[in-house]
């Protein structure tokens, strides 16, 4: 149940139990980030980098290959454009600032923007900027978790259900020779 009337609000005391919570799986995507990388340079707090994904090379898909999600049509398609205006902070935290547009296989456009974090690990900042030693190899890429917080906007009646949710993404970034090469996410709605 989503709501209840409270005719007489109870005297408010500190809770001793947690609210119910759920993560509702929505879709996944794998982003190839080798399109373009612009290093803006050092700014107060860290290094700014703009990373652009290859257009139409990133698929949204359902991990379990199901055709519906939460009773609605599954989100399947491609990311037509995406950019991450990233800040690699000098306290070893990467901050994501992403805007992307998705086109579903049935032609709907869905826009998303989100912030996120990825812990670069101890001395991660120095290793990423100094490239000495290079982080990750082709045979043994460096992988790190990344977490994002997307919301979605669309006017498509088939996908408007997405817009009501605050979402989170659990992801993994792949770094080779200190370059972020790709990132993959599972996206969930908070409920």
């Amino acid at each position: 149940m989503s709501a209840a009337l409270a005719v007489q609000p109870p005297v408010q005391t500190r809770r001793t139990s947690l609210f119910e919570r759920d993560l509702l799986y929505l879709f996944s995507y794998d982003a190839d980030l080798e399109m373009r990388r612009d290093e803006l340079g050092f700014v107060p707090g860290g290094l700014r980098v703009n990373i652009t994904s290859k257009p139409n090379k990133t698929r949204m898909y359902h991990v379990a290959r199901e055709s519906s999600t939460l009773g609605f049509k599954a989100v399947e398609g491609t990311i037509t454009s995406g950019i991450d205006r990233a800040l690699i902070r000098n306290d070893n935290i990467g901050v994501l600032d992403v805007q992307l547009t998705m086109r579903t296989d049935d032609g709907a456009l869905i826009y998303s923007e989100y912030r996120g974090l990825y812990p670069a690990g101890d001395r991660g900042y120095r290793r990423l900027i100094s490239r000495q030693p290079l982080l990750g190899t082709e045979l043994q890429p460096f992988k790190a978790p990344v977490y994002v917080t997307p919301r979605y906007q669309t006017d498509s009646p088939d996908y408007r259900w997405l817009t009501q949710y605050q979402c989170v993404g659990f992801g993994e970034v792949t770094v080779i020779k200190s370059d972020i090469r790709s990132v993959t996410f599972d996206i969930y709605a908070l409920d």
Binding site: D30, A64, R65, G171, D186
Partner: peptide, 8 residues
């Protein structure tokens, strides 16, 4: 594409 969920 992946056929397994990432750790969450």
């Amino acid at each position: 594409n992946r056929s397994h969920f990432l750790s969450r």
